[in-house]
């Protein structure tokens, strides 16, 4: 093919204008290039260029934070693919889910999405356990621990809103059980303590058609409006909020002194 003195294909490619325009530092061979590979990449620059040795050990971090983020991205991608096929209406939701496995080629997308979602809840929990056990929430990282708690709650809410979408018996009754609790919210639920106090004369302001459960379900029971509401919450609203909190979470890891470690 080529003379031995010739440059390899990789090296030739590296010198081309196209390659240089994309990856400015070349293939990371030298120390300097390797640092630049991290600093110059919008994705990798979440990381610092250099880390203390313990920080790259799986035994210390269990990789759980990274996996949580990976699962979020994974779920976004599989979720977008599912949205091509799924219509959030009482009429179509269930049959669309059936079609996902029976009509769509390689129909395991719903499985990938569901099992990744369950895994994400577990992985986020394990991330919290790891951070607690290494005492990594201690100053100056106390604020970021709080952000993490919010992200964990959002993860569970994401999973909960997604639970309704297949619109089968499992879905509506699990969500009915879960959302029935909202009925008992103090002051804001129609069966909550103090709700009766919120009245003008003898007209109750908080009743079954105006309480916090009604706002959550868009009705008096889990129905058409709930499906749409949970669909929007699941696909747009909660991921949007979660992304903002994730941005803060990752930013603050770096700003609060990087990964924790013994002094």
């Amino acid at each position: 093919m080529s003379d031995k003195n010739d440059k390899s294909l990789l090296e030739k490619m590296e010198e081309s204008q196209v390659w240089k325009s994309i990856i400015r530092s070349g293939i990371p061979r030298t120390r300097r290039q390797r640092m630049h590979a991290i600093l110059g990449s919008v994705f990798l620059h979440l990381h610092p260029a250099r880390l203390p040795k313990h920080a790259v050990k799986v035994g210390y971090t269990w990789c759980m934070g990274g996996l949580s983020f990976f699962l979020f991205v994974n779920l976004t991608i599989t979720g977008i693919l599912l949205m091509f096929y799924y219509r959030p209406t009482v009429e179509y939701a269930f049959t669309d889910i059936i079609d996902l496995s029976e009509q769509v080629p390689l129909g395991i997308m719903r499985e990938l999405h569901r099992w990744a979602a369950h895994s994400m809840v577990l992985i986020v929990w394990l991330h919290m356990v790891r951070v607690f056990m290494t005492g990594s929430y201690k100053p100056p990282r106390e604020f970021n621990w709080g952000i993490g708690v919010i992200l964990m709650v959002l993860t569970m809410l994401l999973s909960f809103t997604g639970y309704l979408l297949p619109w089968d018996q499992l879905a509506i009754w699990a969500v009915t059980v879960g959302s029935n609790m909202a009925r008992a919210t103090p002051f804001l639920g129609n069966e909550g303590p103090g709700a009766a106090l919120l009245a003008i004369g003898d007209i109750n302001l908080v009743h079954v058609g105006s309480d916090v459960r009604f706002a959550l379900l868009g009705g008096r029971f889990v129905g058409e409006a709930t499906l749409l509401r949970f669909y929007v919450l699941h696909c747009i609203a909660i991921p949007f909020v979660a992304m903002i909190f994730m941005a803060v979470h990752f930013w603050r890891i770096r700003k609060d002194g990087g990964i924790s470690g013994p002094l």
């Binding site: 120390r31 390797r34 990798l44 250099r50 203390p52 040795k53 790259v56 990789c63 470690g261 013994p262």
Partner: peptide, 21 residues
């Protein structure tokens, strides 16, 4: 503790962390 190492003795994220991830 076992996790301790010399603060000046750092490793490069590329490739030491990136390949683990």
């Amino acid at each position: 503790p076992n996790e301790y190492n010399d603060p000046d003795d750092k490793v490069l994220v590329w490739p030491d962390l990136v390949y683990i991830e």
